[in-house]
Amino acid sequence: MSRYFIRRLLLVVPVLFGVSLFTFILFFIVPGDPVLSVVGERASPETVALIRAELGLDKPLPIQYATWVGRALKGDLGRSFLNRRSITESIQARFPVTLRLSLYSLAIAVALGIPAGVWAAVHKGTWIDAALRNVSLIGVCTPVIFQGLALQYIFGVWLGWLPVSGIGDGSWRHYLLPAVVLGTNIAAFQARLSRAVVLEVLDQDYIRTARAKGLSQRVIVYKHALRNAMIPIVTALGGSLGSLLVGSALTETIFALPGIGSYTLDAVFARDLPVVMGAFLFQAVVFVGVNVLLDGLYVLIDPRVRYD
């Protein structure tokens, strides 16, 4: 099994390489000059040339890329073109915000989504099932922008219970609304998935056997059915966690949270090449890392899973 994981980890290298190369190429395919946002209008051609050289943008593209890779391999992601801040430090400052938001969102998704799905499956065909299905459909369909605005007004402006946006003193109250926005979207998806999976499991022979043995509905559902339904549910949750951890640019922007998502988005708009490269690389590492960990988790959930 350790051989499997070593192989997995070795495969990560070409993935990261590919992501960085793709990002680099894409950056230069899209027209726009990164120097422009640094020097503004009316700078003399000499100044523009000077800044271009200082930022290394005067070199041929393959050399620029090779230089970047060389530094990145040594763990140096460089500095932002725009504000000259260390990118590693910026990521260190911003990732905890995204991490907390992700964990809160996931907790909300698990707490709401899985019980709702199981409950709907158990009450298949009843009004409970129909109601839960419709609510989750609305949850899946509601745009983040609308949901965010509605929550901001209800809890921030009208009731005054929670801050409208921002990180404030860093307490959980500042994370709650954005976590609800992200969490309910995932919960809605989780509910639909859990319902389908649990229904499928409940149709299996061994459940019929369990019923025939006279086991209670509670034990059948929670001990036998749910455990076997966990693999697809965990897979989906892991996927969600991976997407959450790379940062939700839209939610972070709406809620003015200084996380990885808004950091990346701002850098893309400002044509801040080293930040775009560094942020994408970091996100790729996180995403791949989550997936590798998830593979390990399967072994714990399901003893039948073996890696060779």
């Binding site: 801050p163 409208v164 946006s165």
Partner: peptide
Amino acid sequence: YRVISDQATLIAEFEAGT
């Protein structure tokens, strides 16, 4: 000065008195 780029969020913050 808080850093807020979304206009709708700005308006909501203002209406919340912040």
